[in-house]
């Protein structure tokens, strides 16, 4: 067991190192942020002076070693543009990212799961057809389009919701729907297949043949068993939601990590991009590691497989 854990941890470390290396070099392929920082009238000498002051004139490999050394001390560096530690920036944005993810997950689950049940229970009925159409439709629209439509209707036309930015809970409603509707299909799909699976199992068929009514059956027995795959998917979907938030955050001026990262990419603010990507990678890898460990505790067979 410790050997297996050690091996997995080693793999995780290599993955993180790979992400760090990839992101470091890919970003630096087109130079540095100096040109974006100086006013238009800056001369070549001015530009070189600033580049020197920022340390971007050093050999790339030295910069890379520096970056790794900082990373080893869990120092993500300072934003070149804002001149504030990257950790400060991430810390101020993270709560909004989590709020949006929670809101979107609520929408996705809250609508996806009932629709999935509908799809499984009413199979070929018109009701299920319409629901299926709705799910797919929600998944087939770019968010920058559905987002502005929502703003036009609910904010400008009806005046029900604030168009953008943060404030109270109402500011969260539209971004959550714009983002959550995309993932709704996944939840509906998983719920449907999990339910169909359970419904075809012996216990469910026996219960039905003994006259158990559908609602009772769903509530008492099936819900519990069918929720296992659902939780797994929810965990996976969270990382998708975080990534998908890039455009939603831009449209709704929601101050999450996606928005700041896109801006940092375009501004060549390397440190922020590295920080956010590494943090994301760290979370993903840690979750994977954790689930591996949990699985191997639950089911020793997986341990054999994983430790080969």
């Amino acid at each position: 067991m410790p050997g297996f854990l050690l091996q997995r941890a080693g793999q995780a470390l290599i993955t993180i190192l790979g992400v760090a290396t990839l992101i470091f070099f890919v970003q630096r392929l087109t130079g540095d942020p100096t040109y974006l920082l100086v006013p238009e009238t800056a001369t070549r000498a001015d530009i070189d002076a600033l580049r020197h002051a920022l340390g971007f004139d050093r050999p790339l490999f030295i910069q890379y070693l520096d970056f790794l050394a900082d990373l080893a001390r869990f120092d993500l560096g300072q934003s070149v543009v804002q001149r504030v530690p990257v950790t400060t920036i991430i810390a101020s944005r993270l709560p909004y990212t989590l709020m949006l993810a929670a809101g979107a997950l609520t929408v996705a689950c809250g609508m996806g799961v009932p629709i999935g049940i509908l799809l499984a229970v009413f199979r070929d009925r018109a009701v299920a057809k319409i629901a299926a159409g709705f799910v797919l439709a929600a998944q087939s629209m770019p968010t920058f389009w559905s987002g502005i439509l929502m703003i036009m209707v609910f904010s400008v036309l009806l005046g029900w919701l604030p168009p953008s930015s943060t404030g109270d809970i109402w500011n969260l409603v539209m971004p959550s729907f714009a983002l959550g509707l995309l993932s709704m299909a996944t939840f509906a799909r998983i719920t449907r297949s999990a339910l169909l699976d359970e419904l075809s199992k012996d216990y469910a068929r026996t219960a039905r043949s003994r006259g158990a009514r559908m609602p009772r059956l769903l509530l008492r027995h099936i819900a519990r068993n069918a929720s296992i795959p659902l939780i797994t998917v929810a965990a996976l979907e969270i990382s998708n939601l975080l990534a998908g938030a890039v455009i939603v955050e831009t449209v709704f001026a929601w101050p999450g990590l996606g928005q700041v990262t896109v801006q940092a990419i375009l501004a060549r603010d390397f440190m922020i991009v590295q920080g956010v990507v590494l943090m994301g990678a760290f979370v993903t890898v840690a979750l994977n590691l954790l689930s591996d460990v949990l699985y191997s505790v639950v089911d020793p067979r997986i341990l054999l497989d994983g430790a080969r």
Binding site: T106, V107, C109, G110, M111, V113, P114, I117, L118, F154, L158, G159, W160, L161, P162, G167, D168, W170, N171, V173, P215, L218, L219, A223
Partner: peptide, 27 residues
Amino acid sequence: MTIVWRTYPLAVACAAVLALGAASPAH
């Protein structure tokens, strides 16, 4: 159909959010 709503209070909450959306215009 009612079971769907009973099983998923979350969905009900969402519906409530939708319905009451008119409450707070921020000016």
